[in-house]
């Protein structure tokens, strides 16, 4: 028996919009810790890890660890039927091949349930080791989204370099080249407008912009994004989900020519 009641149902809607273009089918895992997912894109270049901690739910009942295979496009279709202010409850019975999403309007005058078929998904769970990163950049998520979008109109790849000067995003394409440098900036009115660069060692890595742009679909989840870089490791692009957890995207670097 599974019953997860999320008062801020819009968070789940946003999570699905953030990941559904990257991953088609995925197993959602439910345990005492929370509601989580780990999945790779079809070409195994990127990985998404989601955690919604049990404490973030108003009511969280998960009698035993369970893994539920879902088609994310179908799940998104159903969650789009929930209002932005709706409370969403995820319900499942042991051994059932379906899951129910219940949507309650804030005034309790409309209650809907949508039943979705589950599927068997063969997925490999990867162990993600704790790592020391050479550089960690924390910046406004909208700014990161803007940079990825702007650069992708010039080139296909982005070189992200962190030095003591700041963080540089560069691209090159048929029509020319572009470089965007951000310096650390903590003298802002609001903390969510700050850019904070933590550098242990200079680092420079090349990534496919197509994936970076896909990650920025998570922008509505968080005003800030954290980009962790280490040579010889996938970059981590993390969007924290207020009070609840995170969506982390891992992207394997391209090999430098």
């Amino acid at each position: 028996m599974l019953e997860l009641r999320l008062v801020q149902g819009s968070l789940l809607k946003k999570v699905l919009e953030a990941i559904k273009d990257l991953v088609t089918d995925a197993n959602f895992d439910c345990s005492a810790t929370g509601f989580s997912l780990q999945a790779m894109d079809s070409s195994h270049v990127a990985l998404v890890a989601l955690l919604l901690r049990s404490e973030g739910f108003e009511h969280y009942r998960c009698d035993r660890n369970i893994s539920m295979g879902m088609n994310l496009n179908n799940m998104s279709k159903m969650l789009k039927c929930a209002g932005n202010d709706d409370i969403i409850t995820i319900k499942g019975d042991d051994g059932s091949d379906t899951i129910t999403f219940m949507f309650e309007s804030p005034t309790q005058d409309k209650i809907a349930d949508f039943e979705m078929k589950l599927m068997d998904i063969d997925s490999e769970h990867l162990g993600i080791p704790e790592a020391e990163y050479h550089a960690i950049v924390r910046m406004p998520s909208a700014e990161f989204s803007r940079i990825c979008k702007d650069l992708s109109s010039i080139g296909d790849t982005v070189v992200i370099s962190v030095t003591k000067e700041g963080v540089k995003f560069s691209t090159r394409g048929d029509i020319g080249a572009a470089n965007i440098v951000l310096r650390q900036n903590t003298t802002v009115d609001k903390p969510e407008e700050a850019t904070i660069i933590e550098m242990n060692e200079p680092v420079s890595l090349t990534f496919a912009l197509r994936y970076m742009n896909s990650f920025t679909k998570a922008t509505p989840l968080s005003s800030m994004v954290t980009i962790s870089l280490s040579s010889e490791l996938p970059v981590v692009v993390e969007y924290k989900i207020a009070e609840m957890g995170y969506v982390r995207f891992y992207l394997a670097p391209k090999i430098e020519e």
């Binding site: 070409s43 270049v45 769970h125 990867l126 162990g127 891992y250 394997a252 090999i255 020519e257």
Partner: peptide, 14 residues
């Protein structure tokens, strides 16, 4: 064109 690596080259099956 820079060749693309895969995630599985960095993280192993748990």
């Amino acid at each position: 064109v820079n060749p693309q690596r895969q995630i599985t080259a960095f993280f192993s099956k748990s």
